[in-house]
């Protein structure tokens, strides 16, 4: 699964980790517009849109590699991954498009007035609920990577920092 990124330097997975953390948290916040307020909901989601594109660009090699051999010899797990990612892409696109269609902040700012349509509104909510499930599955399929990378870039740095004074003392005494 991670063979493509693994070949690169460790920095790549750190970049991935930061991006994934940002989109994960942003998505959760975006599913609760009444918690953030409507204007923040819209701007946050616009930022999320950009970050998802970055996420895809970071995984471009994987996308190309699996696309090429989707009907050939490829592990079933990768194939399932691929289908799920296509579903995710479609769902996120629907969320973003319907969001723009019902926008009260971003689109009016551009001087545009769209006719209100309850269909977009309910589709927006529905696609967002579907997204919760799909992203849950997406994360589940990468759970080992998430645990491994969290240890490396989140837990270990914190532990190291907590132990720093002691090690510094030790080196001074020597």
């Amino acid at each position: 699964m991670q063979t493509v990124t693994k070949a690169k330097t460790g920095n790549r997975s750190k970049t991935n980790y930061v991006v994934d953390l940002i989109i994960g948290i942003s998505f959760l916040l975006a599913t609760a517009p009444n918690a953030t307020g409507e204007p923040i909901h819209e701007w946050l989601s616009m930022g999320l849109l950009v970050m998802v594109v970055v996420h895809l660009l970071l995984h471009w090699q994987w996308i190309v590699a699996i696309s090429k051999k989707l009907f050939g010899k490829v592990a079933w797990q990768q194939r399932i991954n691929y289908m799920l990612n296509i579903g995710l892409f479609i769902d996120l696109t629907i969320i973003m498009f319907t969001g723009v269609m019902i926008s009260k902040t971003v689109v009016p700012l551009l001087g545009l007035q769209l006719p209100s349509n309850l269909t977009w509104r309910s589709l927006h909510g529905l696609a967002s609920d579907v997204g919760v499930v799909l992203i849950g599955l997406h994360l589940a399929l990468h759970w080992d990577w998430i645990v491994r990378t969290s240890k490396r870039y989140l837990i270990q740095p914190i532990v190291k920092r907590l132990h720093k004074p002691a090690t510094q003392l030790a080196t001074k005494e020597q």
Binding site: A32, N34, A35, V133, L139
Partner: peptide
Amino acid sequence: GGFGHIIRNAAIMTIII
């Protein structure tokens, strides 16, 4: 979509994972 929503959705994701 209040704060309860965040908790609910995070819980759904956790269960799926």
